[in-house]
Structures are given as structure tokens and as C-alpha cells.
Amino acid sequence: MKAKRLYFFLVLAFMVSSVKAQDLLDILDKERKDTLRYAEATFKFSRISFGHSVQTRKDGTLDVFITNRFWNTPADRSQSFFVDRLSTRFALEYGVSDRLMFGVGGTTFDGRFDSFLKYKLVKQRVDGNGSPFSLSLFQNASYFSESLSGSRYDAISSGRFSFTTQLLVAKKITPKFSLQVSPTFIHRGLVYGPEDPQNHFAVGFGGRYKLGAHVSFVSEYYYVANPLKSIDTYGPFSIGVNWELSDVMLQFMLTNAVSTVEDAFIAQTRNNFNFKNPNLNFGFNFTYTFHLKNKLKRKK
């Protein structure tokens, strides 16, 4: 009996001392209570493929963003080298703060100049205490500079402006998989026919799946609730791959959208997604990111 009790106390003493040795890391886990953990990089870039993602750029980063779309005309024979048509948008996009982003761009093919502001309103929290999704507001204005047949357009330059407002709602569901829904309102300046609406409602769906650490698969689609009546339009769709290399972002995609400006590609995509020329475009976007602020220096 005595021996049993002695044994029991020895075991107890051993347990007490071993518990003491183990819980150093647990003490540290308890120490760190106030760490806010937000879902970072729901998408790797400010665009999913052609459309804006919920992501804004970090404070002090300048993106030199070049968007290209290549496509062929339906002619049997063509004397064009490589592709028949090319549209390029050159843009500068700057992260004013970690939440606010500003950009200007110009497109060669349809002569559209655009400028936008995007603000990250809500950040998704991963610890379950806050918002389960991220939310950004997007507003752009675009100016259509191409000359138009029919003199009634030339008289009023205000009709050449279009505006797009988007609510970008996204969730990083797993570290690899993110989804976005983007309710969109478009006001188009130009009136093609009396039956055409000038205000469009649309909703976009987009997603990414990380294939590896640096490569992700992306796809996007926009549904327009009240499309143009005088011409046939289709919802823009894309499948693509985003490849990130240090300061360079490369995006490759197949899409039926020609334009890269929101009001044009959402409401005025005239081809459906199929493999007949000139419906299918190959898209190649190149972005080089400059860092104008040194984060280490600013802290000191």
C-alpha cells in the first residue's frame, strides 16, 4: 500500500514537471491574442483576367500594365504577319494607399481612354471574427475618341463618356481557391438606336485556382441583364493562366472580349465564345511592378 502511494506521488511529480516543460510554446500562443489576420492575396493581381479583382495594389507600387488582344479576321487568306488584328491598352496603375488604387490607360484599337479608382472597403478575416469576404468599390470613366459616322455624335462630346460602377465581393475559400461576384452598373454615353438602353445592369463571376506557388488558373464571365437591342451582344467569357515571376505578372487568356475597358467589354462584346474567327481572341497581359516606397526605411 505504501509502495503504491509512493509510486503514485512519483508519477504525479513527474507529470507536473513534464507539463511545465512542454507548455512554453503554449504560453507564447496565449501571449499573441491581438494578431489580426486578414486573408491576403485573394487574387494575385488587380485583374482576374480581363475584369477587375477585389485586390488593390499595395501602398507605393506602380504597375506598368500592357494589355494585348490578338485575333484573326474571317478572311480565308490573310497577308498579316502572325495575327490580323491587335489591340493594346497601355496603363499606369498606382497604389495610393494599401486600400486605394488609381489608374489611367489608353487603348489603341478603339481609341478608348479610361481612368479608374478602386477602394478596398472590407477585408476578409480568417479567424472567423470579422467579415467572411472582401469588398471593393470600383468606379471608372472612359472616353471614346474614335471618329463616328453621323455628325450628331460630334456635336456633343459628353456623349462619348461612359461610366462603370462595380461592387466587387470576393472570398478566399481555401489558400488556393478564390471566388468573386461583381454586381455592375454601366452608363453608356453613346446611343446607337432608340430602343437601346443607356444604363445596363450586369453581374460578373470570376475565380482562380492556384496550380502551383506561382501559377494560377483563372476564369471569368459577365452576365448582362438588359443588353443592347440594335446589335447582338454576348457576355464576355475567359479562361486563362496567370503566371507571376518576381516583379513581373504575365497573364495569358482565351476570350471573346475585344476591349479591355469595362463598359465596352461587358455591354458591347459582339462575339460569342467559340473557335471561329474573329470570335476568339488570344489575350496577353504584361505587368511590371515598380516599388516607389521602401517599406523597411519608412518604419524607422
Partner: peptide, 12 residues
């Protein structure tokens, strides 16, 4: 130093 480095470090 660069904001993108931090993102790459954490993400990739």
C-alpha cells in the same frame, strides 16, 4: 523593402 516581396514570401 518591397510590398510584393512580402506577398510572394507569404503566398508562394
Amino acid at each position: 523593402e518591397k510590398a510584393l516581396m512580402r506577398e510572394h514570401f507569404n503566398e508562394s
